[in-house]
């Protein structure tokens, strides 16, 4: 299990665990839930923010938020 911000772009992973208290509800509602597929599409300069794909949603989140998402490589 690794933190999302450590995931390399293009590598497919599955969300394993999230920090419910810290993650905004909006992100959870957009599909950031355990079991869903996640990958990093692109990183902005200095690796922040991250352009991620959860299921079919394409989102940008900051690195600090990504630290509250834990993923498993598949």
């Amino acid at each position: 299990m690794i933190r999302l911000d450590k995931l390399s772009p293009g590598v497919k992973a599955e969300i394993e665990k999230i920090d419910t208290d810290k993650l905004p509800l909006k992100l959870i509602e957009m599909g950031c839930l355990p079991g869903n597929l996640i990958s990093i599409v692109q990183k902005a300069p200095f690796n922040d923010p991250l352009y991620i794909k959860i299921d079919e949603s394409h989102l940008a989140i900051r690195k600090e938020t990504a630290k509250d998402i834990f993923v498993r490589l598949i």
Binding site: P24, K26, L27, M30, P49, Y51, S57, H58, L59, A60, I61, R62, E64, T65
Partner: peptide, 9 residues
């Protein structure tokens, strides 16, 4: 509290 979520359509 800071957070940032943007959809890239």
């Amino acid at each position: 509290k800071s957070y940032f979520v943007v959809e890239l359509p």
